[in-house]
């Protein structure tokens, strides 16, 4: 059974077709990459999966359940988490708070017991704190737990955003350009980190990335988009030798290159 089944979706903004007939089936445990030149419609695909946009035509299924047009918070609840291309952390909140927020959607205590600090709530809060600390330790951010998230270096913020997404307990993790703005050393660490969390959390990962080293290095299957259309699909070697892909990226006919 597929984890995610995107059935030929199309997204139109007025007269502009941002994504045209996008089709993808993701099997549990896969690590898939989505690449393409700027403006190809990659982030739009993510926005449709996470409910920020509703596809104009056709539907998306998650574990055989139709999730088209469901609100983003409900989609996160069924098990799809994401990060953003231009990080969206809660800059003025502490690092630990940023992670703890990720656990809020699974909170069992009701509002009254949270306000009046009933023992059941205090216990739940304590366990959320412990789990958040474990996540922070995983990325080595535990010593910054009381710093404001906005004051962390760029690479650390990226990691924080990823573990915040992990805190929601996803089955499918969508990463939108996780290596953007990282130096080669950080990028290398990130690749190891992504593979580690995939094993540790039993995740399926779907990522957008411009850094070819990352995509070719960790993804088993790659999709290439250009002008809203999927132009190629295959393993890294196939993609590297695909004339359509070379044309899209270099803008010349492969024969002349």
């Amino acid at each position: 059974m597929e984890l995610l089944n995107i059935d030929n979706i199309t997204m139109k903004f007025g007269g502009l077709t941002a994504v045209n007939n996008f089709e993808l089936k993701i099997i549990p445990g896969e690590l898939i990459g989505l690449i393409g030149p700027n403006g190809a419609g990659k982030t739009t695909v993510f926005n449709m999966i996470t409910g920020i946009y509703t596809p104009t035509i056709n539907k998306i299924y998650f574990q055989d359940r139709d999730i088209t047009g469901i609100k983003p918070d409900k989609i996160t609840k069924v098990g799809i988490a994401r990060t953003f291309q231009n990080m969206r952390l809660m800059d003025n909140l502490t690092v630990i708070d940023n992670v703890m927020i990720g656990f809020h959607l699974h909170l069992k205590s009701n509002l009254a017991s949270a306000i009046l600090k009933f023992p059941s709530y205090v216990r739940e809060e304590e366990s959320i704190y412990q789990k958040s600390m474990e996540l922070l330790e995983k990325v080595g951010l535990e010593q910054f737990k009381l710093e404001k998230a906005g004051s962390l270096p760029y690479g650390q913020q990226r990691k924080l955003e990823i573990i915040r997404a992990l805190a929601t307990g996803p089955k499918l993790l969508l990463l939108d350009e996780p290596a953007a703005g990282m130096n080669p050393q950080e990028t290398k660490e990130l690749m190891g980190f992504i593979q580690n969390i995939q094993d540790d959390f039993n995740l399926t990962i779907f990522l957008i990335e411009h850094d070819m080293k990352v995509v070719m290095g960790i993804c088993k299957r790659i999709l290439v988009m250009d002008y809203g259309v999927t132009i190629a699909e295959g393993n890294p070697v196939e993609i590297q030798n695909n004339p359509e892909v070379i044309k899209a990226y270099l803008g010349v006919d492969a024969n002349y290159a």
């Binding site: 983003p72 918070d73 996160t76 952390l89 927020i101 959607l105 805190a167 929601t168």
Partner: peptide, 15 residues
């Protein structure tokens, strides 16, 4: 406070 800081991010982490 998450909503105050960033509404879209808050919604995407399930709030």
């Amino acid at each position: 406070m998450a909503i105050r800081e960033n509404e879209i991010a808050a919604e995407v982490i399930g709030i």
